[in-house]
């Protein structure tokens, strides 16, 4: 199962790197699709002004990336904690299912 999961993980990473390779040296800006949608709003309704602005905005891109990293870290930490606890107690077997062999290093 470890092998299959690693293969899946490589596929995910490849899918994220591929666009960077394809557009290497090109003009792609890798803007957020949300901003692209906002631009489309501007062409459909020229001069549209949002009627409400965020009550607080991260003062800079650095602080925004800090908070995004924090969000991912909280999530990843919790998931790691969860699987850490579960794997420490060993693979549980459902009725009629034989426990699988432990992969090396686990």
């Amino acid at each position: 199962m470890l092998k299959r999961n690693l293969l899946l993980l490589f596929a995910v990473i490849a899918l994220a790197i591929l666009p960077l390779v394809i557009h290497h040296g090109g003009t792609a800006e890798f803007n957020g699709a949300d901003n692209e949608a906002a631009k489309l709003v501007e062409t459909l309704r020229p001069g549209y002004q949002p009627w409400f602005t965020p009550i607080w905005e991260p003062p800079s891109g650095e602080i925004a990336s800090l908070l995004f990293a924090l969000q991912a870290a909280i999530g990843a930490g919790l998931i790691g904690f969860y699987f850490g606890r579960r794997s420490a107690s060993g693979p549980r077997s459902a009725p009629g299912r034989r426990p699988e062999k432990l992969a090396p290093g686990e």
């Binding site: 994220a16 890798f30 699709a33």
Partner: peptide
Amino acid sequence: KMLLAASGAYVFVLSALKIPSVTGSCS
């Protein structure tokens, strides 16, 4: 309870990751 928390954490992680796509934009 723990699985519920881990599932919520999964939403936290994935929606924080802006990943480049073949179209040259990120989502």
